[in-house]
């Protein structure tokens, strides 16, 4: 009986490993932020090689927590994204009745623009002119480049211990 054990175990192991690789290769995720940066290396220090839009689907090629190496089918786009910019859910930008049903009964689908969205905010502003969003808009326009951050750290003698993930 023992002589069968090793080949069976090996077979099971190969299957499991093989499945694992297959599964990772098949993983598809969605960009869940307004602008998803794709970088050349799994680090915020990596050069930005592409920018993806909210809802874009990406194929996950490799995972290196908290980074995922992705590519976009049909596009010349391969690189690393931080997992906090991605979701397992499919983000539906134009929802039909079927999507609504799906979103209700499963955790696999999310509807873009649901609930509190741009239009709701627009109406909110119109009805409440006293609430001023001007500074909120100004805040959002403050963009800091990776270079500026690196210079800031260097000039202040701040030495990251793996800080820039």
């Amino acid at each position: 009986m023992n002589r069968f054990k090793v080949p069976i175990l090996t077979f099971v192991l190969v299957c499991l490993t093989g499945w694992g690789v297959y599964a990772v290769g098949q993983k598809v995720m969605s960009v869940q932020v307004k602008q998803g940066c794709v970088r050349s290396t799994p680090s915020f220090l990596g050069k930005i090689v592409a920018s993806l839009a909210y809802g874009d689907r990406v194929d996950v090629l490799e995972e290196k927590d908290p980074w995922a190496k992705i590519c976009v089918s049909g596009k010349k786009c391969e690189g690393w994204m931080h997992v906090s910019a991605l979701t397992n859910k499919k983000i539906v930008l134009k929802a039909g009745a079927e999507d609504v049903e799906k979103a209700a009964s499963s955790d696999e689908v999310a509807l873009a623009g649901k609930g509190f969205n741009e239009q709701v905010e627009g109406e909110f502003k119109k009805k409440n002119p006293k609430i001023d969003f001007a500074w909120v808009d100004k805040m959002e326009k403050i963009v800091v480049s990776q270079n500026a951050m690196q210079t800031f750290l260097k000039e202040g003698g701040v030495n990251p211990e793996g800080g820039a993930q």
Binding site: V33, K34, I142, A148, M149, F152, G163
Partner: peptide, 23 residues
């Protein structure tokens, strides 16, 4: 903002829908 966004990148949630901004 330079300091804050640098710190945010080292958090467990560096990417949010509209990013981190400080005032």
């Amino acid at each position: 903002n330079v300091m804050g966004q640098t710190l945010a990148q080292a958090s467990d949630m560096p990417e949010t829908f509209g990013g981190y901004h400080f005032l």
